[in-house]
Amino acid sequence: MTPHPNLSQIARYATGDPGLDEASVWAIEVHLEGCADCRARLAGSTTADSRAMIERVAMSLDREIAATPAPVANSRSWSVLRHRWLVGTLGPWLAMTAAVLACAAVLSGLRAGLPSLVLLIAPLAPLPGVAVAWHRRADPAWELIAATPAAGLTTLLRRTAAVLAFVVPGLALVGAGTGASLALMLLPCLAFTAATLLLGTLVGVRRAAIGLIAIWTLAVIAPSLAAARIPAVLEADSAGSWALATALLTITALFRVDAFRRLSRQD
């Protein structure tokens, strides 16, 4: 703290003495902000008019504070829970996923000659949600959250789990309606989720999701629809391979946990 100004300096400051040079005024102001004793001395040096004005302002403020309505306790625990597990904009993406799955189920029912669209798009179902869950533009508080110990893998896994908790029952429901194999829908779905997280450590989760969606669409969905037959990778005997791929991708993604501890340029 700067040295205490003497009583004469305080009195000259209080009366606005033009003889007090600028540096001294500045030093007194800086000191007054941190020294209650000198503020009390300053209060003693002010004129009766100034004291009366301060009192009027204080009384007016007290009246306004007293007139302010008391806070109403308001429980919005759902709002907090939603943000603990999901980012705010995840809802529309999940709704879109549900709509696409429902359309695929209807189309599969209408066009009996085509391979099951539900089976073909099931691996991609969680990817839009997973991509949004860790995209900085989707979360207004991303920078605040990125500096907390929960940032990175913990948050990503929490939000991914929330996406899967919505997508997996949805797939099971649609699968039951269309007769598609549950194992052949869920295992590729989990493998693609793990692959997105793993690739996300290199290029960002959003880019990884977009890339995998594009590759699967071009390499599997389009040829399968053109040939009007289920691709070999989704035949009944491929379930074991998908289970192995899911386990390997998940373990490898967990080994790359460090990459999720900070925000990269790709996020």
Partner: peptide, 17 residues
């Protein structure tokens, strides 16, 4: 640039953090 969730109350937001 301080981002926040507009539907949170002050208490909920600080508690969430």
């Amino acid at each position: 640039h301080f981002g926040f969730y507009p539907r949170f109350s002050v208490r909920e937001f600080v508690g969430y953090m």
